[in-house]
Every structure is written in C-alpha cells, then in structure tokens.
C-alpha cells in the first residue's frame, strides 16, 4: 500500500507543476501589459510599475519566483486590476462562500444518490427503480446552467418561496437553490453508478452465501454488499469534485453569491491575469488533493490494493 500511495503522490506533484507552467506560459502569450490603459502611462512610470511587480525580470525567473511563493507561503501574488488587493485577499473573501455550498452540494449528492441507487438495485424493475433510472437519465441533460434558471423561475418568480440570489452570510434559504442546482447532476450520476454496481454485487456468489446462511436482507446489504458496491462510486468521486468546483463558478455568477467564481469570471472578462491564474492553480491544487484523498479511501476500502 505504501508503494501505491507513493505512486499517487508521484503523479500529483507533476500535475500541479504542469498546471502552473501551463497557465504561466499561456499568460506569457497574452497580448499587452497588464498596465496598458487608454491614457497611456509615461515610460518611466511603466518601468517603475514593472519593477515593482517584478515584470522586468526574465520569464523563467518569474516562473521560479511564482512557484516558490506558492510552495513556501501559499502566496499567489498581487492582482493587476485591484491595486490594493492581492490574489490571496480575493481568495480569502470568496472561498469560504464557495466552500460552504460546495460541501453541502457534495453531501447532498452522496446522501441522496447512494441510498436511491441502493433502493433501486434492491427493488430492481419496480416503480422506484424506474423512477431512479428516469431521474438519472433526465439529470444528464439538466446541467447546472439549465437547472439554475429553471429553479429561479419556479421557486423565486412563480412561487416566491426562496431568494433567487445573494448570500446574506449563508442563511439557509439563500443556500437551498445553489445547492440543488449544483448537486442534481452528480446526485443522478452517483445514483446510477450505485445502482449498477449494487446490481452486479447482489448477483455475486458471496451474497448468495450470506443469504443462504439465513442472514436478514438488511444485514446482507449493509455488511456484505455495500462495501464492494461502493468501489466504483468512490473512484467516481475524484472527478466529481473537479466538476463540482467548475460548476461552482457558474453558481457563483448566476446566484451572485460573492464566491470565488464571481471574481474569476470578472477577472476573465477584465483580463486580470494574475487572478485568473491564481484561481486556476488553487483549484488545480484542490482537485489534485481531493483526488489523492479519494485514492487513499479507495486503497483503504479495496483489499486488492491494501496488500
């Protein structure tokens, strides 16, 4: 198992480095200097500005400094548009919001998806199974940018039950719509995966053995079937987190939550390169870290790897 974990870490580190270098190279290609403005800055001022932000040094040196600052101090440098704020300030402001409803969405997707999948598998070919299958097919074409406007149309404009945007420090009624919009498609995928792997496991000989020795069905499922059935679901969770993070960008923008995605899109539209890059790298690190956690969970649960 140590070798397995080391191998995973050996992939994680170059992944993050690749991401940093890739975004850095892309930014080097970006036309214009971040200090271009319509009025035109005197060359002396420009030179001073570039010296202040270290832009007068060769690219390779700046890349080295950038990586060094991230590794040692988790410092993503200054924002080029907001002169008084650093990328870290922006992250500190937006990240807690995104994290809050991101965690709720992940929990909701698992808490509804897994039981739904299990029940659908146990009651194979009954109405509840068809309901689960129908839901998971339907949710495939209902990505978050389709869900979000529909939810607002129904629950905010027609019924008037819930606010259609804002955050208000994370009061529950401001959380509901973002969480539903973000989690639905993952809920459906998790339900579908759980169902199919559960069906497979329930047909395995060791389940028949468990039933043959007279165990009640509940115990057979919880003690014997659940763990092996969860393996494909867990390996799916890694990419899910990545999609949750990407999806959160849209949720932030659509619901104006003040989360990190709103800053990201504003930065993308305003060409604030250091913010775009900082958020990209931060999310890359989070995704890789979560993937690592998922891999460890996989190792812990799958006896084939534990050896």
């Amino acid at each position: 198992m140590t070798a397995y974990i080391l191998r995973r870490i050996a992939i994680a580190i170059p992944t993050i480095l690749t991401l940093i270098v890739l975004s850095f190279v892309l930014m080097e290609f970006a036309p214009g200097s971040p200090f271009d403005s319509e009025r035109g800055i005197p060359p002396a001022v420009l030179a001073n500005l570039e010296a202040k932000y270290g832009l007068d040094r060769p690219a390779i040196e700046r890349l080295g400094i950038y990586i060094w600052n991230i590794v040692t101090q988790f410092d993503f440098g200054p924002s080029f548009t907001y002169r008084d704020r650093t990328v870290n300030d922006i992250i500190a402001q937006g990240f807690p919001v995104t994290l809050t409803y991101g965690i709720w969405s992940g929990l909701a997707a698992i808490a509804v998806g897994v039981p739904l999948g299990i029940v659908a598998a146990i009651r194979h070919n009954t109405w509840i199974d068809y309901l689960a299958v129908g839901f998971s097919i339907g949710a495939q074409v209902l990505p978050n940018f389709v869900m979000a406007p529909i939810l607002v149309l129904v629950f905010t404009l027609w019924l008037g039950w819930l606010p259609g945007g804002g955050w208000q420090g994370g009061q529950w009624n401001y959380l509901v719509l973002p969480v539903i919009a973000l989690s639905t498609s993952f809920m459906a995928s998790i339900a579908r995966l759980t169902r199919s792997s559960m069906l497979e496991v329930l047909n395995a000989p060791f389940i028949r053995t468990a039933q043959a020795k007279g165990l009640p069905m509940r115990r057979v499922i919880l003690r014997h079937a659940l763990k092996p059935a969860m393996l494909p679901v867990i390996s799916y969770l890694g990419p899910t987190f990545a999609f949750l993070l990407t999806g959160s960008v849209l949720i932030d923008v659509f619901f104006s939550t003040g989360g990190i995605g709103q800053f990201f899109v504003a930065a993308a539209l305003g060409r604030d390169y250091s913010v775009i890059m900082g958020v990209t790298v931060l999310y890359g690190i989070i995704v890789v870290a979560l993937n690592l956690v998922v891999d460890l969970a996989y190792a812990w649960i799958d006896p084939k790897i534990r050896l």
Binding site: M277, Y283, V288
Partner: peptide
Amino acid sequence: DVLIAIPYMFVLILLMVV
C-alpha cells in the same frame, strides 16, 4: 495520467481570455 487530473475548464477559460 498527469494531464487528466487538471481541471480543464479553467485552462480553457484562460485560453479563451489570452
């Protein structure tokens, strides 16, 4: 293996901006 773990939506947006 290395590339597949990168959250590409962000890189794509970066690409579209640059």
